[in-house]
Amino acid sequence: MQRVNMIMAESPGLITICLLGYLLSAECTVFLDHENANKILNRPKRYNSGKLEEFVQGNLERECMEEKCSFEEAREVFENTERTTEFWKQYVDGDQCESNPCLNGGSCKDDINSYECWCPFGFEGKNCELDVTCNIKNGRCEQFCKNSADNKVVCSCTEGYRLAENQKSCEPAVPFPCGRVSVSQTSKLTRAETVFPDVDYVNSTEAETILDNITQSTQSFNDFTRVVGGEDAKPGQFPWQVVLNGKVDAFCGGSIVNEKWIVTAAHCVETGVKITVVAGEHNIEETEHTEQKRNVIRIIPHHNYNAAINKYNHDIALLELDEPLVLNSYVTPICIADKEYTNIFLKFGSGYVSGWGRVFHKGRSALVLQYLRVPLVDRATCLRSTKFTIYNNMFCAGFHEGGRDSCQGDSGGPHVTEVEGTSFLTGIISWGEECAMKGKYGIYTKVSRYVNWIKEKTKLT
């Protein structure tokens, strides 16, 4: 034993070699072989497995989906700052455009905790909710729209109204504003409101030439003092309507412009014939205590009207009353817009006519005020429907199939267009061939041609 100890002390290297040989010859039971080890760690190889990531292109799944990435790591994937920024906006807080917040056709661009709407022409605001041009839906104005110097929408209202708090709607500024039905039992019968379409306001006024200088022999019209197929109006439903009495009662109609003036057809009036105007009328054979009678003290036909040349060209006249009318729910003026808007309103496509005229061709006159909704007829169809001249200051309205029309005794009465609950004068009943005849239409004086003249002559002093 002493000898062994001496050998170990003198030859430590020998001992180490012996131990190493023993270990190498022993069977290893701690580690699995290569094949079995792979069965336990069965993990798919990654895209760049075996390579240094710093030297390969980034992978979106590896960089940002398996674990949260930084902007720089995302930049490695896209290799483009702009594309990385677009991805980053949604990656950080989701897609803010998912709810489609942009209105009126706006395009949404996502941002971090926010979004941006790219608005089409005519709109602005956070969600493109603000109209900035009158060309689109009248700028959301209830009545009139004008573009300011910086191309912003400025709404306005006709006389007797003021802008509401929203700067879009119009509200009454006087007790009985024009064009409004205020009798409670008839307010439910107000005709369907007309909503502004998209309009090209630059070209809204037709490029028409008034044929002022045409000389033409007097034409022989049949029954051209021209509501057939209409309905009984309720008291106060058309408070701007008046009836004219002269040699015979209810020979023509008219509309209240203001307390002192009536507008009617020029062919209705004769110099030297006494005319009485009755406002607030409903049943011409009954006294309903809503009527107001006034005498006409002055007749002003349009300066281009000449019955000797043509009885229905420039067929418009103004009547001055001896005493002002007292405005109330049964006696209310009709609204008159400017030339541009009167023309736009007419193009809405349908209007209402009213009167006490004959209820059928050569038949009896109506006792109760009649009204009828009539569609506008395109000019080409209008011209083809008659052998008589249709001037540019006239328009056609009615039904091709016949059966409904204005008729004798309705002449001078109103053709009105309702705009968001307020009625505007767009025409004056003038003439036609018979009444409600198939293929024939009622012919009306186009008020847009005469609004400046009306307003100039009827100013209240």
Rank of each mutant, 00 (worst) to 15 (best):
V331A: 07
N151E: 08
E259C: 04
A279Y: 00
C97V: 01
R3I: 12
F221P: 13
A173C: 05
R162P: 01
M8E: 09
L425Y: 01
K188E: 08
N135T: 08
T225M: 08
F221W: 12
F121H: 14
Y341F: 08
S99H: 06
K137S: 11
P120R: 11
F224Y: 11
C435G: 05
I316T: 01
R358N: 08
I334L: 06
F345I: 07
D232Q: 09
I256W: 02
Q237H: 08
N147L: 13
A250M: 07
N213E: 09
L211S: 11
F399G: 10
V419S: 05
A26F: 05
T381I: 13
N127G: 02
M6I: 05
T422S: 04
W240T: 01
N203A: 12
E433T: 12
I40H: 15
H282K: 06
E72I: 15
L327F: 14
V278S: 07
V242G: 00
V243Q: 07
L319S: 01
H267D: 03
V4I: 11
I40A: 15
V263Q: 02
E27R: 06
I454F: 00
V183W: 09
S107P: 01
L163K: 03
A37P: 15
Q237F: 11
C119E: 00
C252M: 01
V277N: 00
I300K: 03
L383V: 08
R140P: 04
T29M: 14
R162Y: 08
S365T: 14
V227R: 11
D110V: 05
I316C: 01
T158A: 09
K260V: 04
S204C: 05
C102V: 00
N42M: 10
E159D: 11
L327V: 08
V416W: 15
N36D: 13
Q216S: 13
T81Y: 05
C117A: 01
N393K: 03
M394C: 04
M394F: 08
K339M: 13
Y352V: 09
P375Y: 13
D338K: 05
C28T: 09
T332P: 01
K188N: 13
E418F: 09
Y444W: 01
E259L: 04
E67I: 04
D111S: 10
S107F: 07
R294Y: 02
E208W: 08
V269Y: 04
W240E: 01
Q216F: 09
G412Y: 06
D338P: 11
K146M: 13
I15F: 06
S448G: 09
E270R: 11
A380I: 09
E434L: 11
T158W: 02
I40Q: 15
S25H: 05
E142L: 04
L369M: 14
K51M: 07
S204E: 11
P333N: 04
T84V: 06
P239I: 01
I284T: 11
F31Y: 15
I40W: 06
R373L: 06
V277S: 00
A149N: 11
C382S: 02
C268N: 01
G280M: 02
H361V: 12
R294N: 01
Y330H: 10
I262K: 02
T381A: 12
L346I: 07
A207M: 09
F238I: 06
L460D: 14
Q370R: 13
